[in-house]
């Protein structure tokens, strides 16, 4: 297996470089891309990447594999390698801290902007705010996001305007709270999104949909937000 790995240490290197590595992998079963990285790190401990749960729950190991964003831990090597070759790069569009580790500040800043928490001015009931099963159903396909940033860093609009366009991950969460029957800040939330950049920079490219390792659909959520904005404007 030939692996081309993006290497960059801002303290030591003048510019990023691609390192070519060879790895013998056993012919049994299918390894995940994270397994490859672990093996490479056993050989060269200076290789840097993020990981934690190794089962697609924590969202730490989003990387770009042969041009496709995804989680290294849940992507089988056979799915991304082409003719025995695999190119691994950090998520595109974000500043690189080292090798495959990117600085997610910009991404989190957009997430913070949409106020990702329940807002409700009514006094809380004794136990909890209840929801009908139908209302709870509306949050399916929204709440599962693990904030891995695979979607936003595959989105050209986010590359172009990362400080103004909220991006697919943030907008999916924006809709998650707009759709929540217990949230009463709908008006304020929509008012925040009405400018030409936050939502309306989405061009429906839909890279986010093919990138999302959890099978979520940010484009659909963005469409719903647009509909809410148009209806509010009438």
């Amino acid at each position: 297996m030939r692996i081309s790995l993006y290497r960059y240490d801002p303290d030591a290197d003048a510019a990023p470089r691609m390192e070519n590595l060879e790895l013998d992998i056993p012919g049994v079963g299918d390894l995940m891309v994270l397994d490859l990285l672990e093996r490479l790190k056993a050989i060269d401990p200076s290789i840097a990447y993020r990981r934690s749960c190794r089962e697609g729950v924590c969202g730490s190991d989003g990387v770009n594999m042969n041009g496709r964003n995804g989680l290294a831990c849940t992507t089988p090597v056979s799915e991304v390698a082409r003719r025995g070759k695999l190119t691994l790069r950090p998520l595109p569009g974000l500043p690189v801290i080292r090798d495959l580790v990117v600085d997610m500040t910009q991404f989190y800043r957009q997430y913070e902007k949409i106020k990702p928490f329940l807002q409700n001015e009514d006094p809380p009931p004794a136990r909890e705010r209840l929801q009908t099963p139908e209302d709870r159903e509306k949050l399916n396909g929204l709440y599962e996001c693990i904030l891995c940033a695979c979607c936003s860093t595959s989105c050209p609009s986010f590359w172009w305007n990362p400080e103004k366009f909220v991006g697919p991950a943030g907008l999916l969460q924006a809709y998650r709270f707009l759709a929540d029957s217990r949230d009463t800040a709908t008006e304020e939330r929509l008012a925040e999104l009405e400018d030409p950049f936050s939502v309306f920079r989405c061009r429906g490219i839909m890279n986010c949909v093919s990138a999302c390792p959890k099978g979520l659909n940010p484009t659909r959520a963005i469409g719903k937000i647009r509909t809410m904005l148009v209806e509010r404007g009438i």
Binding site: D195, P196, F200, G233
Partner: peptide
């Protein structure tokens, strides 16, 4: 600035 956009609001631009 959004002022340079025709309708000043993304929504207005989108609809227009």
């Amino acid at each position: 600035t959004p002022v340079a956009s025709l309708g000043r609001s993304g929504l207005a631009d989108f609809v227009l």
